[in-house]
């Protein structure tokens, strides 16, 4: 019944009509391509896969002051020295005592820190010194160095979306990998250790 009213055109030039019908199909074709794209992207919106513009780039060269009053077995725990990234594979964990998932991942970093091939350091994000120190006292301090980022500026440099986040910096000082969200029992072996080994192999 739709066809019955279709014969509306009274312009008789078949050439022109043909050209126009191709033009008319264009929007649909464009949309079809778009729909296919969406279909592929579906489910790729996992926040853990947020892009980091910094992967493969040098780790930001910012030195951060230590947590006031934080001591370890070898005396005061130093702040973050950007120069120390070169030559080691370094795990950089951005954490805060007020961040709930950070409490869950803290014991896992203690496990990770047992691996003597790597250095584990922390960036304490927007935290009070007392809270940060006692947070580390509560779970044990896995970090050989902790830098304080009170203003959040360093986190911006590192391209942090939110705490917790963990970076692997290779011996060349380039950021090799970034984990958005907490380290968990699930991803510590399947993702973190795999990426660490890869960074170690890279020399």
């Amino acid at each position: 019944m739709l066809v019955s009213v279709c014969a509306m055109s009274d312009t008789a030039d078949p050439q022109a009509t043909k050209r126009r019908s191709w033009l008319a199909i264009a929007p649909f074709a464009a949309f079809a391509a778009l729909a296919i794209l969406f279909l592929f992207r579906l489910g790729a919106g996992d926040p853990g896969k947020l892009p980091s513009a910094l992967i493969g780039r040098p780790a930001p060269l910012i030195s951060l002051p230590p947590i006031e009053g934080l001591t370890g077995p070898k005396g005061a725990v130093p702040g973050l020295d950007a120069a120390a990234f070169k030559g080691n594979v370094t795990i950089v964990n951005v954490f805060a005592s007020w961040c709930v998932p950070c409490h869950d991942e803290a014991p896992l970093f203690t496990q990770l820190a047992r691996d003597s091939r790597i250095r584990v350091v922390g960036i304490n994000y927007k935290d009070a010194a007392d809270n940060a120190r006692r947070f580390l006292g509560r779970y044990g301090n896995p970090y050989s160095a902790v830098g304080v980022d009170a203003s959040g500026r360093a986190a911006i440099e590192w391209g942090v979306y939110g705490v917790p986040e963990t970076f692997i910096v290779g011996r060349d000082g380039l950021i090799a990998f970034k984990l958005v969200g907490p380290l968990t029992e699930d991803n510590i072996d399947s993702i973190m250790r795999v990426e660490i080994d890869r960074a170690l192999k890279k020399g």
């Binding site: 279709c6 509306m8 055109s9 126009r20 019908s21 008319a24 929007p27 649909f28 949309f31 729909a35």
Partner: peptide, 15 residues
């Protein structure tokens, strides 16, 4: 998609 398909089909016939 439906609207654009309809457009592709019918628009050339519009005056």
């Amino acid at each position: 998609g439906g609207a654009l398909a309809l457009f592709a089909w019918r628009a050339p016939a519009l005056k």
